[in-house]
Simulated scan of single mutants.
Amino acid sequence: MKAIVCKQLGGPETLSLEDVTLAPPGPNEVRVRIASAGINFPDILQIAGKYQFKATPPFTPGAEVAGTVTAIGAKVSNVIIGDRVAAIVPIGGYAEEVNANADGLLKLPADFDLSIAGGFALAYGTTIHALKQRGSLKPGETLLVLGAAGGVGLAAVQIGKLMGARVIAAASSAEKLALCREQGADEVIDYSKESLKEAVKKLTKGQGADVIYDPVGGDLAQDCFSAINWCGRYLVVGFAAGTIPEIAMNRLLLKGAAALGVFWGGFIVREPKVNAENFAELFAWIAEGKLKPYISKAYPLADAADAMRDMQARKVTGKIVLIP
């Protein structure tokens, strides 16, 4: 089969399309013929050797896939050959096929388009968990979303609106903010041109946001602590800016606020029933036409390096996928 291989740690230029052999699935695994594979910022960190979960070259990057089950291990009983599934894998997603642990599979509705499903589970699973279980977002509250035109950011805009929040989308260009408005944002902030802190205070009449969804980190985090409401919840989702901020604890104290980590990977292992309930709600919204996952571009498998470079250059909105 064809797969993208990282032979040495570095940037996207180190990747190549190779013919590789995939071992048969283990007793608790299934083989998935990949219809689409999501591209995520941690993939870039992983090929550079900077991600928290290390992989030793040669390896195939990619953690998020969707496709059809073509083979099952001896102990697998929860799926059958032909089932349509999404899967999160440690590595191996940038390929035509991958072996995935059967316990972590997400069965997809029959009418879910597999060509976009590879970019769905991680962003939307992370976000609904963040807003429901971690942020306890309530109807009528104000949700501030940083990096709002990115994959998880746009999911937060969409899901926040469906949960009844007033959504303020913050991003770095007029074009990105226009997309956020199309996807339901009530207010927008261009933090490349104005102070995030001051803009949030103005839009909330000095109160601040009730829930702040931050996949960006970096310097903007400090503005968040100055723009959070009494008993607000600051959600630590990721660090796309490249630096991990230090929390100004005094600001949390003065606002009676909380900083909450969002680690969906740990959540799905520890609370699989609640995760299943989250996805049941997501699928219901999709079936009702209330939610439409946004995939801005699909790249051929051979163009994986170009897709990563576009993500590094912040040219990407929503999610992007590879199509084997």
Rank of each mutant, 00 (worst) to 15 (best):
P42G: 08
R31Y: 07
T68E: 15
D19G: 06
P25M: 10
L17F: 08
A55Q: 08
Q46D: 13
P42Y: 03
I34N: 11
N40C: 12
V65G: 01
F59G: 02
A37Y: 02
I72V: 15
K50Y: 10
F41K: 00
F41T: 00
P27N: 10
F41R: 04
L17P: 08
P61G: 00
G49H: 05
I39E: 00
Y51C: 05
A35R: 01
N40D: 07
S16L: 10
N28L: 14
E64V: 07
S36E: 03
K54P: 07
G49W: 01
P25W: 05
G26H: 05
N40Q: 09
F41S: 00
I44R: 04
T68I: 15
V32S: 07
K50E: 08
K54L: 14
P27F: 07
T68K: 11
D43G: 03
P58H: 10
V20A: 10
A71C: 11
K50S: 13
L17T: 12
F41L: 05
L22Y: 14
V30D: 07
V32K: 02
A37F: 01
V69A: 06
T68H: 13
V65S: 03
G67P: 06
P58Q: 06
A37V: 05
A66Q: 09
L15D: 00
I39Q: 01
T56A: 13
V30F: 06
P58D: 11
L45A: 11
S16T: 14
N28K: 15
T21K: 15
Q52R: 14
E29Q: 14
A37C: 09
A37I: 03
E18W: 08
F59R: 02
P25Q: 13
L45P: 02
P57H: 08
A35E: 12
R31H: 07
Q46A: 14
K50Q: 15
A23W: 12
F41Q: 00
N40F: 01
Q52S: 09
P57C: 10
P24E: 13
V20I: 15
L15C: 03
L22I: 15
E18F: 08
E18V: 05
E29I: 10
V20S: 10
V69H: 03
G26R: 10
P27L: 14
T60N: 03
P27S: 12
A48H: 00
V65R: 00
A55W: 06
E64F: 03
N40L: 03
L22A: 12
P27I: 06
V65L: 06
L45M: 15
G38T: 04
T21F: 14
P57W: 10
P25A: 05
V30I: 13
I72E: 06
T21D: 13
I34A: 07
Y51Q: 02
K54A: 12
I47K: 00
I44K: 04
T70W: 04
P58V: 02
V30W: 03
S36G: 02
I72L: 11
T68A: 09
A48L: 01
L17C: 11
I39Y: 01
P57L: 12
D19K: 12
P25R: 06
F41W: 04
Q52K: 12
T21Y: 12
I47R: 00
A71V: 02
T60D: 07
L15S: 00
P61N: 10
P25T: 09
E18A: 12
G38W: 00
A35G: 14
Q46C: 12
F53Q: 13
A35P: 04
V65A: 03
I47P: 01
